Measured scan of single mutants.
Amino acid sequence: LVRYRTISKIPQITLNFVDLKGDPFLASPTSDREIIAPKIKERTHNVTEKVTQVLSLGADVLPEYKLQAPRIHRWTILHYSPFKAVWDWLILLLVIYTAVFTPYSAAFLLKETEEGPPATECGYACQPLAVVDLIVDIMFIVDILINFRTTYVNANEEVVSHPGRIAVHYFKGWFLIDMVAAIPFDLLIFGSGSEELIGLLKTARLLRLVRVARKLDRYSEYGAAVLFLLMCTFALIAHWLACIWYAIGNMEQPHMDSRIGWLHNLGDQIGKPYNSSGLGGPSIKDKYVTALYFTFSSLTSVGFGNVSPNTNSEKIFSICVMLIGSLMYASIFGNVSAIIQRLYSGTARYHTQMLRVREFIRFHQIPNPLRQRLEEYFQHAWSYTNGIDMNAVLKGFPECLQADICLHLNRSLLQHCKPFRGATKGCLRALAMKFKTTHAPPGDTLVHAGDLLTALYFISRGSIEILRGDVVVAILGKNDIFGEPLNLYARPGKSNGDVRALTYCDLHKIHR
Score class of each variant (00 low, 15 high):
Arg71Asn: 07
Ile72Val: 12
Arg74Met: 05
Pro82Tyr: 15
Phe83Ile: 05
Lys84Pro: 01
Asp88Leu: 01
Trp89Leu: 01
Leu90Thr: 07
Ile91Arg: 01
Val95Cys: 03
Phe101Gln: 07
Ser105Cys: 03
Ala107Lys: 01
Lys111Ser: 03
Lys111Arg: 06
Cys122Leu: 01
Gln127Ala: 02
Leu129His: 03
Ile138Pro: 01
Val142Arg: 01
Ile146Ser: 01
Thr150Ser: 10
Thr150Asp: 14
Ala155Asn: 11
Glu158Asn: 10
Val159Leu: 05
Pro163Met: 05
Arg165Asp: 11
Arg165Ile: 04
Ile166Lys: 01
Val168Tyr: 06
Ile177Ala: 10
Pro184Tyr: 01
Asp186Glu: 13
Leu187Cys: 08
Leu187Ser: 13
Leu188Tyr: 08
Ile189Ala: 14
Ile189Gly: 13
Ser194Ile: 10
Ile198Gly: 09
Leu201Ala: 05
Lys202Gln: 01
Lys202Cys: 01
Ala204Phe: 13
Leu209Arg: 01
Val212Gly: 04
Val212Glu: 03
Val212Pro: 10
Leu216Asp: 01
Arg218Glu: 05
Ala224Cys: 14
Leu227Pro: 03
Phe228Lys: 01
Cys232Asp: 01
Thr233Ile: 13
Phe234Leu: 13
Leu236Thr: 01
His239Val: 01
Ala247His: 01
Glu252Thr: 03
Pro254Ala: 15
Trp262Lys: 03
Leu263Asp: 01
Gly267Asp: 01
Gln269Lys: 01
Gln269Ser: 05
Ile270Thr: 03
Gly278Trp: 01
Gly281Trp: 01
Asp286Leu: 01
Val289Ala: 01
Thr295Lys: 01
Ser297Asp: 11
Ser297Tyr: 01
Ser301Ile: 01
Gly303Asp: 01
Ser308Pro: 01
Val321Asn: 01
Met322Phe: 01
Leu323His: 01
Ser326Leu: 07
Ser331Asn: 03
Ile332Leu: 08
Ile340Pro: 01
Arg342Ser: 06
Thr347Asn: 12
Ala348Met: 13
Tyr350Thr: 01
Tyr350Asp: 01
Val357Trp: 01
Ile361Asp: 01
His364Arg: 03
His364Ile: 01
Leu374Thr: 04
Glu376Leu: 11
Tyr377Arg: 05
Ala381Phe: 05
Ala381Gly: 10
Ser383Gly: 08
Ile388Glu: 07
Ile388Asp: 13
Met390Pro: 07
Val393Pro: 03
Leu394Thr: 03
Gln402Ser: 02
Gln402Gly: 02
Ala403Pro: 02
Cys406Trp: 03
Gln415Tyr: 11
Gln415Glu: 12
Cys417His: 15
Phe420Arg: 03
Cys427Ala: 09
Met433Val: 07
Lys434Gln: 04
Lys436Val: 09
Thr438Lys: 06
Pro442Asp: 01
Gly443Asn: 10
